[in-house]
Simulated scan of single mutants.
Amino acid sequence: MSKPVALITGVGPGTGAALSRRFSEGGYRVAMLARDEARLKLLESEIEDSKAFVCDVTDVAQIDATLAAVRQSFGDPSVFIHNAVGGTFGNFLDIDPAELERNFQINTMALLHLARRLAPPMIAAGQGVILATGNTSAFRGKANFAGFAPSKAAQRVLAEAIAREVGPKGVHVAYLTIDAVIDLAWTRKAFPGRPDDFFIKPAAIAEEAWHLAHQDRSAWTFNAEIRPFCETW
């Protein structure tokens, strides 16, 4: 049998790369989507059975061209993880409204466009996974997150609407809320002096995504939350 295919958006040096590695290790061919070609090509050279696809998920024409290329190279994905994220910080008076609109395109509209194209073959097969990575902004609107939280809340509600539609047809949709600072080079610089336990490890996020994607269909999760043991919540 040919290997199953996982399509992952927002593949960068952190969560996206960790997701790609975990699904490759689990026996998947991995289609990695992002805008940075050089970074994608480096990851492609490091991760077995992976392929880089340069794509701006705010551009519907690029989405269509990329999906055609993925299907030609690998076939239809049985797992789709929307990890691409757009974020802008500032209160509602300070932000550029255009930034919120762009974040909405990345976080919410890209999920809609990709799910509309990837779900039908999953439904026809009677199985598949659609997973979006999110954060606590999807559940609350703090003052300085006005350019970001509305798009993540809409993303989560859209994922729930998709889940209620395709779940009974055999397609598992889940929303993975990451309530933590992800361990990256730039976050280490942004939070100097913090202990290792303060950060969530990208590999640990990927492991939970793997678990969600392979749950028994008698016990599917939609809302999943992960955080370091020491996180105050």
Rank of each mutant, 00 (worst) to 15 (best):
S24A: 14
M109I: 14
V85R: 10
E208D: 02
A146R: 06
P77S: 06
N107T: 01
P228H: 04
S137M: 07
S2K: 13
L112D: 04
W186N: 13
G167Y: 05
A146C: 10
A190I: 02
A69Q: 14
G126P: 13
P4M: 01
T9V: 11
I106C: 05
S151C: 11
I8W: 08
F222V: 01
N103Q: 09
I200Y: 08
F104N: 11
T9S: 15
R194C: 00
D64H: 02
R102L: 10
I130R: 09
P13M: 10
V166I: 15
L131F: 13
D49F: 09
A161G: 12
E37S: 14
G193F: 01
D59P: 08
V11F: 05
A18H: 00
D196F: 07
M32T: 03
K201R: 15
A6L: 08
L67C: 10
P192N: 15
F145V: 01
T187I: 12
G147L: 13
R71Q: 14
L111D: 01
L40H: 06
A69S: 15
R164V: 08
G193S: 07
S78P: 03
F139L: 14
D183M: 02
F198H: 08
M109N: 07
A119T: 13
I182K: 04
T88Q: 12
R39T: 13
A149Q: 08
G87K: 09
A17I: 03
W186M: 12
M32A: 05
A52L: 01
A34K: 02
I47V: 15
F222P: 02
F74D: 05
A125D: 15
Q62A: 13
L158Y: 10
R35E: 06
D64R: 06
E225W: 05
I178C: 01
T232G: 12
F198T: 03
K189H: 07
P168T: 05
N91A: 09
V173M: 02
F89H: 10
L111Q: 02
A61H: 13
E37G: 01
P4Q: 02
L42F: 05
H214E: 06
W220K: 02
A153R: 07
S137Y: 11
I178P: 00
A180L: 04
A180I: 04
A17Y: 12
F92G: 00
A61T: 14
P121R: 03
N107A: 02
R117P: 03
L176F: 04
H82K: 03
V129A: 12
A154H: 04
P77R: 03
P120E: 11
Q72N: 11
D36F: 00
G170S: 02
A154F: 11
A68F: 09
N91W: 09
V173T: 08
R21W: 11
R140F: 12
